[in-house]
């Protein structure tokens, strides 16, 4: 089954004072790959300009955007059309130069602790890796139900386990941390999901991928209890949220920031 998805994604930042200098790393360009064909994709920046575009170590397309000096707002608009295919979450073998052992490294956000150990202990080992990982995914969701209460971008996996609920990013972090503790290379994925019942989506989405010897990378969307299908557009990957964040930046001065996102994903 294939789908043709139209995306319009606007991220609008406003500041309570002019920003003298600022930069943002934008990881918002999906790439064509088996199961995902990017027909068109454009990024427009209002109140800033793209300085350089490059590929990072995970082969994500990154745009470095600078603020127009003295601006107090900046908007990044992505528009595009992507044809997707349901491959039951299977992404395939590791490409590029990143050695698989790198995906077993813990990061600040995915440092395993007692909470992770308890999750791993409670996961029923199945005959095949895939079933084990699905069991882990189900366990994470049952112990950490989806809730947007107290959502914060800097929660670590252990924080989330303690808190007992979370959003897609938190689920992905907990799942990655546990999968690594079980010996699997695992990574964070940011992207888009077309929710069936609506055009206006709340926010961009996040899930996890685990490398299993027989299949290569396989996706797990813990929050939705499934592997990604044709409704998913994969945009960027990294060891955790920080490595794959759609936008991460730095600015001079003391201006406070407010952000609003509007996202439409619809089938054509």
């Amino acid at each position: 089954m294939t789908m043709r998805l139209n995306v319009e994604h606007r991220t609008h930042y406003t500041y309570n004072a002019p920003v003298p200098y600022g930069l943002q790393q934008v990881r918002l360009r999906p790439k064509s790959r088996p199961g995902q064909l990017v027909e068109t994709w454009d990024i427009e920046v209002l109140g800033g300009q793209v300085e350089v575009a490059f590929e990072d170590e995970h082969a994500n397309s990154v745009d470095l955007v600078s603020f127009t000096p003295g601006q107090s707002e900046i908007e990044i608009i992505c528009r595009g059309t992507v044809t997707t295919e349901d491959r039951a979450g299977v992404v395939g073998p590791q490409g590029g130069f990143v050695p698989l052992w790198l995906f077993q490294r813990s990061t600040d956000l995915t440092k395993p602790g007692d909470g992770t150990a308890a999750l791993v202990a409670a996961t029923t080992r199945q005959d095949d890796d895939l079933s084990t990982l699905h069991a882990l995914s189900a366990l994470v969701l049952s112990r950490i139900p989806y809730s947007t209460d107290q959502a914060a971008p800097d929660l670590t996996a252990e924080d989330v386990i303690t808190l007992g609920h979370g959003v897609c990013q938190d689920h992905a972090h907990v799942f990655i941390t546990a999968a690594r503790a079980m010996g699997f290379p695992a990574r964070y994925v940011s992207g888009y999901l077309m929710m069936n019942d609506r055009v206006d989506q709340d926010a961009s989405h996040a899930w996890a991928e685990v490398h299993v010897p027989s299949l290569g990378w396989v996706g797990f969307d813990v929050s939705n209890g499934i592997s990604p299908d044709a409704r998913y557009i994969r945009v960027a990957t990294g060891l955790d949220y920080r490595g794959a964040a759609p936008i991460s930046g730095l600015r001079y001065g003391l201006a406070g920031e407010a952000m609003s996102v509007s996202l439409q994903v619809q089938q054509q």
Partner: peptide
């Protein structure tokens, strides 16, 4: 800030 990005982009 950003020098690694310019570096990877060949600048």
């Amino acid at each position: 800030p950003g020098i690694m990005d310019v570096y990877r982009a060949g600048g």
